[in-house]
Amino acid sequence: MEKPVLDIRNLAIRYAGASRDSVRGVSFTLGRERLGIVGESGSGKSTVGRAILKLLPTAQITADRMQFEDIDLLKTSEREMLKIRGRRMSMILQDPKYSLNPIQRVGRQVAETYMRHFPATKAEAKAKTLAMLEAVKIRDPERVHDLYPHEISGGMGQRIMIAMMLLAEPELVIADEPTSALDVTVRLQVLEILNGLVRDRGIGLIMISHDLNLVRNFCDRVLIMFDGQVVETLRASELDNAQHPYTRGLLAAQPRIGDRRKMLSVLDRRPEWSQEVTA
């Protein structure tokens, strides 16, 4: 097997002042593939994503192993993280409205990523930016480059975020609900672009989502999280054959087009789901 991009063993995260771990015993490896993490709100999926980027300065993070390529994340200082974050691993957040600086032209914000990590003149950075805007299928990059965030649509905003993240050619991208704020017609386009870039550039992608349809269609493997633990790991294509009652409950709760109308089944949360993995 090829060397994994990311290898996490027995990760536990406790927020400052919390009485118990928010995430417990999470282990997975990520190759050059698309890994989905699904679960309900509060299940700890975003917390895992943030911990990998070390964006939780006050939380206590313990693990047996947190290896990102040649870097041991457990030993990396914040100073070193500044060179890794945005350069070798980056994150795409849910809503571009809040991720972009509202009073700066979008092109400048994309170029900043490049200038921050590579020795380049402004003109070089701009050329790179325009090429990248084109790569995320923005039709008129010269014009869009000079727009402000309020002048662009949500779908275009998210494509700009993708351009910004991928400009530094990272090895790992963590997308936290990248399309939840977008309309369904735009969602597919954004996912296609993300997909294509990740595939062509051999990037490892972690897709954090509450949307089972999304991970079913756009990921290779899926981790299902409940109450801070991974209860099941599956190939996305085999999601319908899930064994764990929680996964099956989530799948059954979802209305599907063309289903016979009946009461949707409701998740019956069992306390033992929270225990079994640590036992």
Partner: peptide, 14 residues
């Protein structure tokens, strides 16, 4: 709402 909670609310509305 989460899909599991959505199911409860949709059932209620029905």
């Amino acid at each position: 709402l989460d899909v599991s909670v959505q199911a409860e609310i949709l059932n209620l509305l029905v």
